[in-house]
């Protein structure tokens, strides 16, 4: 059960939304598609969902062209809220479940489980329009996978959620993954992508800047982020060999090294053979890599 995107291009009259994009998502994997606004993420999702045709290239699910598969194997959460405002939470979930080929009787167990899991029991009979933004997001999310899809697309699933609900959602995504659902999602919150994804594709104006495992991406940059807590003044630290940049935090420094080989000599200098409270060498965060790749400050 793999999704295979093979040299897909989507052209409009005067611009190219997606240019020669290729990636593969294996069964049970969580794959992140990240990029700035207008990078082509939603267009890619729509092509996978057969809502838009590709100009060139092929998209297949388990070897079958995407426009020939049974659409009930797919689940989709769009970026903006997409629920019926005047329908109750429960009716909404039954409706979307039935629309994706499930029988109402069989849906009851799932509906009850997820309503309970997302703490929506007291909202079961409430109309969607009366719910808070976060609760609407939860209802919409349940609606996207109530039919137990084989492949689930989540476009910005975390937007509008508070930290507690964000954790609920992350756990639900992991549970779905553990049950065999293949998940493709996009998010502007890089920490979430970093936490959930094994593989990702980084898009800039429709072009893939990187496709592969998160670890491989990080290895491209190496362990160049050094965080230390010391009394040594900034002016001294920035003159050390191998230091490219220094950022002064509240009670610590963050140094960007040219490469990780300089870390040893810096450690020797800073510790001078004594106890040191903090010396941490790590990969760059995905957000830092993203900013570096796309060349902007806004994610």
């Amino acid at each position: 059960m793999t999704l295979f995107i093979d040299q897909v291009t989507k052209k409009y009259q005067d611009f190219v939304a997606v240019d020669n994009l290729s990636f593969t998502i294996e069964k049970g994997a969580i794959f992140g598609l990240i990029g700035q606004n207008g990078a082509g993420k939603t267009t890619t999702f729509r092509m996978i969902l057969d809502l838009q045709e590709t100009t060139e290239g092929n998209i297949t699910w388990n070897g079958t062209h995407i426009n020939s598969i049974n659409r009930d194997v797919l689940g989709y959460l769009p970026e903006e809220r997409g629920i019926f405002p005047s329908m109750t939470v429960e009716d909404q979930l039954y409706f979307f479940g039935e629309l994706r080929g499930q029988q109402k009787k069989k849906l009851k167990k799932e509906v009850d489980y997820w309503i309970d899991r997302f703490e929506l029991e007291d909202k079961r009979k409430a109309k969607a329009e009366t719910l808070s933004k976060g609760n609407q997001q939860k209802v919409q999310l349940i609606a996207s996978f109530i039919h137990k899809p084989e492949f689930l697309i989540l476009d910005e699933p975390f937007s509008g959620l508070d930290p507690v609900n964000m954790d609920l959602l992350k756990n639900a995504i992991l549970e779905l993954r553990d049950n065999g659902t293949t998940i493709l999602f996009s998010s502007h919150q890089m920490d979430n992508v970093e936490e959930l994804c094994d593989h990702l594709c980084l898009l800039k104006r429709g072009v893939s800047l990187f496709t592969g495992s998160l670890l491989d991406l990080k290895k491209q940059y190496g362990k160049t982020k050094l965080t230390i807590r010391t009394e040594i003044p900034k002016e001294v630290l920035e003159r050390l060999e191998g230091v490219k940049e220094i950022h002064v935090g509240k009670d610590q420094y963050t140094l960007t090294l040219i490469n990780e080989s300089y870390a040893q000599s810096i450690f020797d200098f800073v510790s001078n053979g004594k106890y040191i409270e903090k010396f941490s060498l790590d990969y760059l965060s995905l957000e830092e890599i993203f900013k570096d790749k796309v060349g902007g400050t806004h994610v």
Binding site: L51, Y76, P78, E80, G82, I83, L99
Partner: peptide, 12 residues
């Protein structure tokens, strides 16, 4: 406008 159409069209 409410984007529910996008969800529906993913199924039908």
């Amino acid at each position: 406008g409410s984007r529910v159409l996008e969800v529906l069209l993913a199924s039908v």
